[in-house]
């Protein structure tokens, strides 16, 4: 035990959890219930993403879900009673994975928007 190490993982898990209740609600309803046929085709995705508020919500969703998921994975792994060295390794590995996930998500969103506008130019 290391009493000096402060631990707010649980607190952030709760905060991102609450955010996810709202953001995932929007995300799931928008993509699977409102969209005709239960899933948007490419042009529908582009129309959806043309709204900057939607882009902000999707980015908020990406950040919340990544933090929540990886804090959860860390918690599950720590529950197995790892020794101190492995606890450190797991924390570093998951932090790196989180950064990669966020970078990938942002890159993906940017690339999709680029593809969309390029196609729009081409078809016009």
């Amino acid at each position: 035990m290391n009493p000096k190490r402060s631990t707010l993982g649980w607190f952030w898990q709760s905060v991102t959890g609450l955010a996810l209740l709202l953001l995932l609600g929007v995300h799931f309803v928008a993509h699977h219930f409102i969209a005709a046929g239960g899933l948007r085709d490419f042009n529908q995705v582009m129309a959806y993403l043309s709204n900057p508020i939607i882009i902000a919500l999707e980015l908020g969703f990406l950040v919340s879900v990544t933090i929540h998921a990886l804090l959860g994975v860390r918690s599950i792994l720590f529950d197995l009673g790892l020794d101190a060295r492995w606890e450190k390794n797991v924390t570093w590995a998951l932090t790196a994975l989180g950064a990669l996930t966020l970078a990938y998500g942002v890159w993906l969103l940017y690339t999709i928007l680029q593809t969309g506008s390029a196609l729009a130019m081409w078809t016009r």
Binding site: D41, L108, I112, T115
Partner: peptide, 15 residues
Amino acid sequence: LSMLTGGPAQWDPFV
């Protein structure tokens, strides 16, 4: 979701 980068040609068959 990376299929979206391929445009409708890649995405719509998946949909």
